[in-house]
Amino acid sequence: MVIGASGQIGRPTVTALARDGWQVTAASRGGGRDAAWDEGVRAVRLDRADDAALAAVVGDGCELLVDIVAYDAAHARQLTSLAGRIGSAVVVSSVSVYDDGAGRNFDTLHEPGGFPAYPVPVPETQPTVTPGESSYSTRKVALEHELLAAAQALPVTVLRPAAVHGPRSPLPRELYFVKRNLDGRRRRVLSYRGVSRYHPSGTRNIAELVRLAAARPGTRVLNACDGEAPTVAEIGAAVDAAMGVETRTTLVDGLPEGCVGQTPWSIPGRVVFDMSAAARELGYRPVVSYADSLPETVGWLTGVLAGRDWRECFPLLARAYPRLFDYAAEDAWFAA
């Protein structure tokens, strides 16, 4: 059973499990199907907030439960209350749980001096923030703690993806380069000299980790990222290549005033995650590289944007980066 099956990660996860021989129940709020799913996949409606509805869908039991939308300790308790009916679980968490050991983490990113000094790469043994209800990160840690405390009753693999990319993303960072190319912008500015690295996690690679963990039930916490962590300049070049365009890039130190040079990857350093544990414990090898995954993402974004305002299409991205496409400010910066 896959909870959150109709979302960005859920769709390729259902596909990967079905191809591996699992009889999959795809549960989502709308109960929809993906065109890539095998006819044997059973799609059902599920309100995740309804404990009784979740128990009813699990029914007499399932060998594997994959929870892609679990968010906090309450969701963990939903799953552990059904431990007697679930063989093992794979639950998606987030790399935002990590702390640098000095109180800096994803919650302090935008505070003065708050950018975390993580090791490169970050292993799963890195300290995490304190569990609680105050933020996305603290809630995800609470989810993990609750699940791991019940590991004897319910073996669980916790996966921690980073910058998730692929079709149907509610926060598609690649839009920064795709929309600029569609708008005919043939020059750009990249802050921090374009060397910022924020490790991406392709949805097909996350699905591969789920597939591998499903075949090897156990209790473990694993980073869930791609095989490489390209710089923001390399990402821009790869998007250009996928779209068949050429762009002149100006690299600047630091972050200019205002929004110029700011991308969804613009950070003053590198945030890269260690994938050796996944390789060692599950035999993980990425099924697709970042660059090779881009044509599908670019095609999807191009279709979504056709004739529409990007803020209407991606309100979450617009709230996070309201001036992502302030071309007037950029033109003024070039003129100066």
Results as ranks from 00 to 15, higher is better:
V14P: 05
V14E: 05
L159E: 01
A207S: 06
G184R: 03
Q78P: 00
P172L: 03
R185I: 11
V14I: 08
T231L: 01
E124C: 00
R139G: 07
R280F: 05
S137P: 02
T128S: 03
V141T: 03
R77L: 12
R185F: 00
E124S: 03
K179V: 02
D100S: 05
D253H: 14
A277H: 04
A229Y: 07
R185K: 08
P217G: 10
G59P: 02
S191C: 14
A89L: 10
D50P: 08
E39H: 12
S135E: 01
A241D: 11
A277C: 03
D51H: 15
Q78M: 13
W265Y: 12
A306V: 06
T219L: 05
R220I: 01
R270N: 12
R204T: 14
R270I: 01
R168S: 15
R193I: 02
Y192D: 07
V189M: 04
R168Y: 15
D326N: 13
D309Y: 13
R160V: 01
H165Y: 15
T219A: 04
L209F: 08
G258S: 08
L190H: 04
R193Y: 11
M243Y: 06
N205W: 13
I86T: 00
V58C: 05
L209R: 06
V252Y: 06
A162R: 03
R104H: 15
L64C: 04
L143E: 03
G21E: 05
R139W: 00
G299F: 14
P155Q: 06
G166F: 12
L209V: 05
V164K: 06
S266V: 04
G21L: 09
Q23L: 09
V66P: 04
A332Q: 12
T125C: 04
D51K: 10
I68C: 12
V298Q: 12
E208R: 14
A332V: 11
R42Y: 01
H145S: 11
P315C: 10
V195F: 03
R187F: 10
E257T: 14
V304W: 00
A242W: 07
A291F: 12
A320E: 13
T250W: 15
A215P: 12
R45T: 11
A207C: 07
L171A: 05
E208N: 11
A237H: 06
A336C: 00
R211S: 09
P12F: 14
V178R: 04
V92F: 03
T263P: 06
G101H: 04
A55H: 09
T219W: 04
F325G: 08
P256W: 08
R248N: 14
V97A: 00
V164C: 07
L148M: 05
W265H: 09
Y98H: 15
A238S: 15
L46T: 10
R168C: 11
R197I: 03
F273G: 02
F106R: 01
S276K: 01
P112W: 08
G40C: 01
R11C: 08
F314Q: 13
T130D: 11
D107C: 05
F177Q: 13
A241S: 10
A52M: 13
E146Q: 12
R85F: 00
